[in-house]
């Protein structure tokens, strides 16, 4: 039945239905009153990365990050900055002293999460990151980045459960491996122990270029600079100087602080590092093939892993996670060249 103005009344019915329906039908009234109510974000949504720690009692000690810098290297917009923590002697502490993420640069790509071998960095889903400034305020430091594993389980239950299960399985496997290996390792360790100092000698004395003690550098800068300068010096004078020093006493070399090895710099390429270690014993060559991050993913630092391979205490050549396949292949090649494999 049609009459003039029918559409007008149909419109009135529609609006009346909306009016009444908005009081009874939750589907209609979709408004979320933001500060009081929040939309439940999907579990797989992501914003910016955070660092996972395990124990609430000591977040810094129990954080999973070992400052291997894989994420720093892989990060496409290079928004991550990591400085490894060291004790007074310069010994790596397996954790970052500085871990900064510039969230104004971060593009939320999740690549850092995907490359992390320790499940230490994960994506948060907190979208309330606004600040009153554009610069320092948008850089997140270690204290803000550290979040507990419970928090991770809360925001992403499925993913976190899988990660927890995997970590538990890994730990069990390691424990199982360690238990039978303990005895042979102990026996093997004895002949290995004296062997270890042997490969230590380096081109250090010649290549060493003194940086004045009053030069305005932080320890990190000083370390990097000395490494850099020594590589420059080494490449220039290496043929003449490196060879005679090869037989310097072992004891002082092992005592020497990290950084006396010119290739021990994650910024150098594989080829450059191997060139620097050309005239050195097999253990140093092996070490030069590592990623130089001292990340301890293998269970040693770079020095220790190289020595362990050289002495035969460690037979697995694929443990260097930061170095990926490149390091593993190179280690294999070096061992074959040395006739040890």
């Amino acid at each position: 039945m049609g009459f003039i103005g029918k559409g007008l009344f149909e419109g009135m019915v529609v609006t009346a239905r909306n009016f009444v329906g908005s009081y009874f039908d939750k589907e209609r009234l979709v408004t979320v009153q933001y500060p009081e109510e929040r939309v439940q974000v999907p579990e797989n949504s992501r914003t910016f990365p955070f660092l996972v720690f395990d124990k609430d009692s000591d977040p810094v000690a129990s954080m999973r990050c070992v400052a291997c810098k894989i994420c720093e290297v892989e990060c496409p917009p290079q928004c991550i900055y990591i400085v490894m923590d060291r004790d007074e002697k310069g010994k790596p502490q397996q954790r970052p002293k500085v871990f900064d993420i510039d969230i104004s640069v971060c593009m939320q790509c999740q690549i850092c999460v995907e490359v992390c071998p320790f499940d230490a960095i994960k994506m948060d889903n907190n979208y309330e990151k606004s600040q009153y400034g554009r610069f320092d305020e948008l850089v997140e430091h270690l204290p803000e980045l550290l979040k507990s594993n419970e928090f991770y389980n809360k925001i992403k239950p499925t993913e976190a459960t899988a990660v927890d299960a995997k970590l538990k399985a890994d730990a069990e496997k390691k424990a199982k491996k360690a238990a039978p290996a303990a005895k042979p390792a102990a026996t093997a360790a004895k002949p290995a122990a004296p062997a270890a100092p042997k490969p230590a000698p380096v081109a250090a004395p010649t290549a060493k270029i003194a940086i004045p003690d009053d030069a305005p550098f932080t320890p990190e800068q000083r370390q990097w600079l000395s490494g850099y300068l020594s590589t420059v010096a080494a490449s220039g004078v290496a043929p003449a100087a490196a060879a005679p020093v090869a037989g310097t006493p072992a004891a002082p070399a092992t005592e020497a602080p990290a950084g006396n090895w010119p290739w021990h710099d994650p910024g150098l390429g594989m080829q450059r590092r191997l060139d620097l270690a050309k005239e050195t014993p097999i253990a140093d060559k092996l070490m030069a093939a590592m990623a130089q991050t001292d990340c301890h993913a293998c269970g040693y630092d770079c020095r220790g892993y190289a020595d362990a391979i050289a002495t035969g205490a460690e037979t697995d050549l694929s443990l260097c996670l930061p170095g990926e396949a490149e390091t593993a292949n190179m280690l294999k090649k070096l061992m074959q060249e040395a006739g040890k494999l």
Binding site: N18, F19, T31
Partner: peptide, 10 residues
């Protein structure tokens, strides 16, 4: 209020 409810707002 009424216009809001008609448009399914609060």
């Amino acid at each position: 209020k009424a216009l809001g409810r008609i448009q399914n707002r609060i």
